[in-house]
Design a protein around this nucleic acid. Structure first.
Lengths: 131, 131
DNA sequence: TATACTAGTATACAAAAGGATAGTATTATG
DNA sequence: CATAATACTATCCTTTTGTATACTAGTATA
């Protein structure tokens, strides 16, 4: 085999990148699905919300999905859950300082997404109201 | 109603953010699923690959999924498909210049994902080999 | 006493994503 | 003529994701 042939042999990604893609997947999982970004955005904006408040703020979400995603975000340290000693009992969900770091990723996704719309749909500006 | 009460009324996200989240979703869709990132990574690294080459490089992918995702990436202008006049006929998939801009998003996802692993799993460095 | 608020859970179902396996068509090689 | 390579497509099945609807338990209000 000659030297010039060596680069023609294409080996599995793992041999070049190892586990490079594992943290990329981790990050993606935090933002994937229909409701995680709305929840993070809501708690980033309002700082703290109750369960029913979130149900109203995030239009279309069912209590089952809200409950499920809140648990996910809590175990991932992005939000906290605190039961208040009120009558009736209220629960306040808050974004953590760590949760606020999501905004760097979301900003990057937003920037790229805007360019992508321009490129693929040839749409400029905020004219995608019917989406 | 007093001024201090105004900020307590929490309205749906749309009233504050409009369609802010639409391009975020668009970007997310391009990177979501099990195979799009491996395909983009493979074509970014090798520049150009055949169908069977991609099947070997991306371990575990089935021809059905590879075909489906290649079509998606092509309609999103991230890759190109070119039929070569060889015998047997070969098809070369290449990353576009635009497709290369994905790396900025993936780098951000990687950076955040590494920090996330440290935070949530308390794992430092590249020790997540069993994932 | 009836209604409504708090914060959820339970059950059933539909849709989407992905996997397993087999098959097609063409051409070249032994 | 059999085998193998190219690039896929087709069918069936399982898993994951999300929806719809109803329900629980406690407290407050009209």
């Amino acid at each position: 085999m000659e030297d010039k042939d060596v680069q023609k042999i294409k080996v599995p990604l793992k041999e070049h990148f190892g586990n490079y893609m594992v943290p990329v997947r981790d990050a993606l999982e935090v933002f994937s699905g229909k409701w995680k970004i709305p929840i993070i955005t809501a708690l980033s904006f309002y700082e703290t919300c109750g369960f029913k408040e979130l149900e109203r703020i995030i239009e279309g979400i069912t209590p089952k999905m809200l409950s499920k995603e809140l648990k996910y975000l809590e175990t991932n340290l992005l939000i906290t859950r605190k039961v208040e000693n009120t009558r009736p009992v209220t629960v306040t969900y808050s974004i953590t300082e760590y949760g606020k770091t999501c905004s760097t990723v979301m900003t990057e996704l937003y920037r790229w997404g805007v360019e992508h719309r321009k490129k693929v749909f040839n749409i400029e500006g905020q004219t995608w109201d019917k989406c």
